[in-house]
Amino acid sequence: MKKFHNKRKYMLIISLVVVLLYATTFIPQRVITTSPSSVSHIHVLDGQSGYELNLSDRDDIYTVMNNLNDVTFQKGKPSIGYMGYSYRVTLYDQDGDELDEFIINSEDTLRYHGFFYAAKSGKIDYNKLDAWMAQVKAQPVEE
């Protein structure tokens, strides 16, 4: 009988620890922490029009990455099953390997690793992405 109580106590402690660890993922934090210097180019796909933008200028990369690194996000509900997006952003290193991928839905909403994240401190520079994408859309189509 004593073995049963000890086992039950250990299971309760383990369950409590797991719940507490999971709860800490909901503390506001920086989600995108990739160093701007490790990014060689950024690929942005407009989910509404299908247009693509490739940023390889160092100043543009630093602008995007510093902005994203400065925003603190609160983890929200799971994003599994949601369709559509504004901008799918993929970060690449010098070798062309993918460093990270995430979806920007608005100036205060990000989808990352299966969850929505809401900006709590700072905002995503969504207008800058819109302006760059407008430039791409304004270019004549090559035939």
Rank of each mutant, 00 (worst) to 15 (best):
Leu99Gly: 01
Ser86Val: 01
Lys75Ser: 07
Leu68Trp: 14
Pro36His: 06
Asp108Asn: 14
Tyr87Gly: 09
Glu98Met: 15
Thr33Leu: 02
Gln29Val: 05
Asp100His: 01
Gly47Gln: 12
Thr33Pro: 00
Glu52Leu: 00
Val71Cys: 01
Met65Asp: 08
Thr90Pro: 00
Asp59Cys: 02
Ile80Leu: 07
Asp60Leu: 12
Ser40Val: 02
Asp97Tyr: 12
Arg30Lys: 11
Asn69Ala: 09
Tyr85Trp: 08
Ser40Phe: 08
Asp97Lys: 12
Tyr82His: 14
Thr63Ile: 06
Met83His: 11
Asp57Trp: 07
Gly84Arg: 03
Thr34Arg: 04
Arg30Ser: 09
Ile27Tyr: 15
Asn69Ser: 11
Tyr62Cys: 00
Thr33Val: 11
Thr90Leu: 02
Gln74Phe: 05
Leu45Thr: 10
His43Arg: 12
Tyr85Cys: 05
Tyr87Ile: 09
Lys75Asn: 09
Asp70Tyr: 05
Tyr51Ala: 07
Ile80Ser: 03
Val44Met: 05
Thr34Gln: 08
Pro36Asn: 04
Gly47Val: 15
Gly96Gln: 03
Val89Cys: 03
Ile80Cys: 00
His41Gly: 02
Glu98Gln: 14
Lys75His: 10
Gly84Gln: 06
Tyr85Asp: 05
Ile32Glu: 04
Gly81Pro: 07
Ser38Thr: 13
Ile61Trp: 04
Ser79Cys: 08
Gln48Ser: 11
Asn67His: 07
Asp60Ala: 15
Leu45Cys: 00
Asn54Ala: 10
Ser38Gln: 12
Asn54Cys: 05
Gln94Lys: 13
Thr63His: 15
Tyr85Phe: 15
Ser49Phe: 02
Val64Ile: 15
Ser106Val: 03
Ser35Trp: 01
Asp95Pro: 01
Ile80Ala: 07
Ser56Gln: 13
Val39Tyr: 07
Lys75Pro: 06
Asp93Gly: 09
Glu107Asp: 10
Thr63Glu: 13
Val44Glu: 10
Val89Pro: 01
Val89His: 03
Thr24Ala: 12
Arg30Ala: 09
Ser37Asn: 13
Gln74Met: 09
Glu101Phe: 00
Tyr92Arg: 04
Gly84Asn: 11
Thr90Phe: 00
Ser38Cys: 00
Lys77Asn: 15
Val71Ile: 08
Thr72Cys: 04
Val44Gln: 03
Gln29Phe: 01
Asn69Asp: 10
Gly50Ile: 10
Gln48Asp: 10
Phe102Val: 06
Ser56Tyr: 10
Thr90His: 00
Asp95Tyr: 12
Phe26Pro: 04
Tyr87Pro: 08
Leu91Val: 11
Ile42Cys: 09
Arg58Met: 06
Asp93Ile: 04
Asp46Gln: 05
Glu98Gly: 04
Ser79His: 02
Asp97Pro: 00
Leu99Tyr: 02
Tyr62Met: 03
Met83Asn: 12
Tyr62His: 06
Ser35Phe: 03
Asn54His: 13
Val89Gln: 02
Asp93Thr: 06
Tyr62Gln: 07
Asp60Asn: 14
Phe102Gly: 07
Leu45Val: 11
Ser35Met: 03
Pro28Ser: 08
Met65Gln: 13
Val71Lys: 01
Asp97Ala: 14
Leu45Met: 03
Ile27Lys: 15
Ile103His: 01
Asp108Trp: 00
Thr24Lys: 13
Ile32Val: 12
Glu52His: 08
Asn66Val: 04
Asn67Pro: 10
Gly84Lys: 05
Asn69Gly: 14
Tyr82Ala: 06
Tyr62Glu: 10
Asp93Gln: 07
Leu55Gly: 07
His41Tyr: 14
Gly84Val: 08
Ser86Lys: 10
Thr25Lys: 12
Asp57Ile: 05
Ser38Asn: 10
Met83Ser: 12
